[in-house]
Amino acid sequence: MTSPVSPGPAPGPPVPLVRRLAAPLGTITAVAAAFAYVGTVDPHEPGHYPVCPLLSLSGLFCPGCGGLRSAYSFIHGDLPAALGANAVAVVGYLVFAVVWTVWLIHAVRDRPVKFALRPVWWWSIGTVVLLFTVIRNLPFGSVLAP
Rank of each mutant, 00 (worst) to 15 (best):
S3F: 13
P4G: 09
P4M: 12
S6F: 15
S6R: 01
P9E: 10
P9I: 07
P9A: 10
P11S: 03
G12P: 14
L17E: 11
V18C: 07
V18L: 09
R20T: 00
P24S: 01
A30M: 11
A33C: 12
A33T: 08
A33I: 11
A34V: 02
F35K: 02
A36H: 05
V38D: 07
V38K: 01
G39A: 05
D42F: 12
H44M: 14
H44Q: 11
E45D: 15
E45M: 11
G47K: 00
G47L: 10
H48W: 07
L54M: 10
S56M: 05
S56A: 11
L57M: 13
G59I: 03
L60M: 12
C62D: 10
G64S: 07
L68E: 07
S70T: 01
S70Y: 14
S70N: 02
A71E: 12
H76M: 08
P80Q: 03
P80V: 01
L83D: 05
A87R: 06
A87L: 08
V88E: 12
V88D: 10
A89K: 05
V91M: 14
G92E: 15
V95C: 09
A97M: 01
A97D: 04
V98M: 02
V98K: 00
V99E: 00
W100S: 08
T101F: 13
W103T: 00
L104D: 05
H106T: 10
A107V: 01
V108D: 11
D110F: 06
D110N: 07
K114I: 03
K114L: 13
A116L: 14
A116Y: 09
V120K: 06
W121K: 00
W121P: 01
S124T: 04
I125F: 13
G126V: 01
L131G: 06
L131V: 09
F132V: 05
T133I: 02
V134P: 09
V134W: 06
R136W: 13
R136T: 03
L138G: 00
P139L: 05
P139G: 06
G141A: 04
S142K: 03
A145S: 10
P146H: 14
